[in-house]
Design a protein around this nucleic acid. Structure first.
Lengths: 127, 127
DNA sequence: GTACGTGCAAATGATTTGCGTTAAG
DNA sequence: CTTAACGCAAATCATTTGCACGTAC
């Protein structure tokens, strides 16, 4: 199965690569619609899925909804439990340590790891 | 606001505490329905939410759907990217190391951390 | 007795699917 | 040309909400 590089696919990929912002499907749809007004949401869903499967982008699940991010150096996420805000957090040491543990697991072949730090952001803490 | 301990709530809590199995909402619903045939799915949703908020159980998000687990010692998850199977993984060292990093974060107050190890389980690898 | 909880049905949101048409390679 | 991809509408899941009635405390 050949993966064709259509306009729609390219715009979606470009948008996700343009900002470290972890957009939702709707955010991608709204943004890409400006350049390609006739695009449908189903196409956005389909392409996000394909792009993630083929390894062009990465899918993250926060509070029940899918979000997407570029392929960056392996990193971790700081997540507000209340509003779902995400901050990227890089720690090679943590990644390496996790992967060391992964090598000793026999139940599954581990491909990558991700550590989530859950808490409350400043805004949500005020309330 | 007083949290009342109704039959429904107790059965849901008991079921989740009974097995290290990370059930989905539907699995909880089906299981509890055997003992309480008149229970509605909305009640299951409501109670799972309350129980998680009050800290009686923990919510985990895998492949877009909510799953629930008892409050155990802090632990991590090994997840099959294909079928969503979860295996618990305990490593005090990893938890402690992550929490050490968390103490230096100024953007958010971290309450807990969780590391996910993603890979493919034996069954899915065969295909 | 008074909220909080329940069950039901309807509403909302997220995601997927079927299908006829379009366009990439 | 041929087949993956598109756009649209409808279908399917997951989850939430409104409301009249029931019940824990």
């Amino acid at each position: 199965m050949v993966v064709r590089f259509t306009n729609q696919r390219q715009e979606i990929l470009d948008y996700i690569n343009s900002k470290p912002h972890h957009p939702t499907v709707d955010e991608v749809y709204t943004a890409v619609k400006i350049k390609l007004p006739r695009i449908s949401k189903a196409t956005v869903y389909q392409n996000l899925k394909v792009l993630a499967e083929k390894g062009y982008i990465k899918e993250v699940n926060i509070k029940g909804a899918s979000r997407f991010e570029p392929i960056l150096d392996e990193h971790h996420h700081i997540i507000c439990r209340e509003c779902g805000k995400i901050i990227d957090y890089e720690s090679k040491a943590l990644t390496e340590y996790s992967m060391t543990l992964a090598k000793n697991m026999k139940d599954m072949d581990i491909e990558f790891t991700n550590t989530n730090f859950y808490g409350k952001c400043k805004k949500c803490k005020k309330r």
